[in-house]
Design a protein around this nucleic acid. Structure first.
Lengths: 183, 183
DNA sequence: CATTAGTTTCAGAAATTTCTGAAACACGCG
DNA sequence: CGCGTGTTTCAGAAATTTCTGAAACTAATG
């Protein structure tokens, strides 16, 4: 039974769910698990949120497909229990990785594919535009990969460096002047 | 009249639209503008994509609300013409800023609000969890703000630094050891 | 001030997504 | 095996979102 404050958080996550590409139900289930200090089974969720059993089941499946929940088993109980990771950074890493997979990678693939098909000569503005977009996505995902490789401790340190990074970027810009975008 | 290859790109953007939190129509309109080497008016879009006039009108309004298109006027013509920015990095900056505004900021606000309401003593796990989430979001948005302040040239330089950053993060972690998360 | 060329709004139709209850399925146990 | 306890699937109901055509609106022009 969620407390008042938990309730509010859960409802908020539900509302935001649609903006985040999951749906209301899934958002609420996630929020509930996130706040819970012990693993919950499907029926706990039904009781807490008053969704139908099958809706909860589907929601959990969806969360599993996003790798956002962990499946646990208690001894002598064959029900599936679920938790979210204790480590908040792990959650964020997963979230970003999954969104990249769903929102960026397919487009990158498509752009590369189209580039191969591109008839030469014709249509040059559009084709240049697509190539620029592809390059930009590659630059960003490359950076992401780099950051993602860091252990959490180092990653956090880097995030907190703040203005030091800007200074570094200043000198880097001089040392490695940006090449002109082609075309 | 989009070429074959443009057509494919446009359809892809349409499909991805729903994952990106805009809809199919809006995705396609954006893609068309993105590839076009000249500003287009609403009727150009109707002709190219065969959507109803009002659908295009709404789509353009939506794109304007995202700041993703620029409104232009040609001399002696009172129609509204639209373009996307030439500079790809500007597009990305806008996109990220808008998504942050819609997907992150409301949650940050809500978390702060709930923290004020939190009864002390009770419910400590959930409240700690929310506080941790808030801190994490603050760390990430702080970093984002920092990056966003950079001029494009420097930003690109930084993105391309790749493994140099990891090294820096290594030393930083030693110098500024991460404080334990409270509770 | 009526006409024309354009844009916006809006109520309902169409399409899509989400949610449900009922049935099917899985599996350990006596 | 047949039963109890739990999970999953699925077809259709319900809700939400998107799309349309018609009407309203705006503003420049003769």
């Amino acid at each position: 039974m969620p407390t008042q404050i938990q309730q509010e958080f859960i409802l908020h996550f539900g509302e935001m769910g649609s903006r985040w590409g999951i749906n209301r139900t899934v958002g609420q289930i996630y929020a509930l698990l996130f706040l819970s200090d012990r693993p919950l089974c499907a029926d706990d969720i039904v009781e807490a949120l008053h969704f139908s059993r099958s809706n909860v089941s589907m929601g959990l499946k969806e969360l599993q497909s996003w790798n956002l929940v962990r499946l646990r088993h208690l001894p002598d109980d064959r029900r599936d229990f679920f938790t979210t990771p204790e480590d908040m950074w792990e959650i964020v890493r997963t979230l970003i990785a999954e969104r990249k997979k769903r929102e960026i990678d397919p487009t990158l693939t498509k752009l590369r594919e189209l580039e191969l098909q591109a008839p030469d000569g014709e249509d040059s503005y559009a084709i240049t535009r697509m190539a620029e977009l592809r390059e930009l996505i590659e630059a960003m995902t490359g950076f992401y990969d780099e950051m993602n490789r860091l252990e959490t401790e180092r990653l956090v340190a880097l995030l907190k460096m703040g203005s030091k990074l800007s200074k570094l970027a200043g000198s880097a810009a001089k040392v490695l002047p940006m090449r002109k975008t082609k075309a």
